[in-house]
Amino acid sequence: MMRAVAAILRRDLALSFRAGGGAGIGVIFFLCVVMVVPFAIGPDQKLLTSIGPAILWIGALLASLLGLDRIFGADAEDGSLDLLLLAPLPLEVIAFTKALAHWLATGLPLVIATPLLGLLLGVEFNALCAAALMLLVGTPAIAFLGSIGAALTATLPRAGLLIAVLIVPFTIPVLIFGTAATAVAITEASFFGTAFKLLLALALFSFVIGPVAAAAALRIGRGA
């Protein structure tokens, strides 16, 4: 089974990073969101510094929603999904692996880009570390919750916006505890407060409910 899991992981990552895969576009979009905010509210450095972590969270959330449709949509288009469904491997494991590959290709680059983009907003060094750490926990939660929406709409063409609309309500807790944990880490210089523990719990919860619900959605979609 590990061999099959490794094969899915390897294939999905290769597809993301090769030409036409679009793995880097999420980071560019993240940069766009971060850049647009000062234009709208003005180049007030003090204000930007104080709301910087929140902007980073909103940017990362929006960028994570982008491209969720590729988790299952591309495989549904070319018939690969049929063969994945027939593979001698629990569908939950397949869904977990594909969501993980999606996060590695699109979510992890966002986390890595966070400190750089934070500099644009004048966020302090310790706040940058805090935001990046919290996003390291928060973005997988968003990706795994998002995989449910991706599975529900796998057979629909151009489901990208629909998935975003479906998934945003479920990511609100992640946003609440993620920003709260970031704020606590900045003001009290302690990373492991209640908010962080709750964020961690949400991430772990999403690792379970995401693949289970996604697998159920794929089964219903195909009658398997």
Partner: peptide, 26 residues
């Protein structure tokens, strides 16, 4: 199952396409 759609990923090479299903199906 061999259906109408060939389940081929264009960005992968021919042997990568086949090797993926070999690893997946065992």
């Amino acid at each position: 199952f061999v259906g109408h759609a060939a389940a081929i990923k264009e960005a992968l090479t021919v042997s990568e396409n086949l090797a993926f299903y070999c690893d997946l199906y065992g």
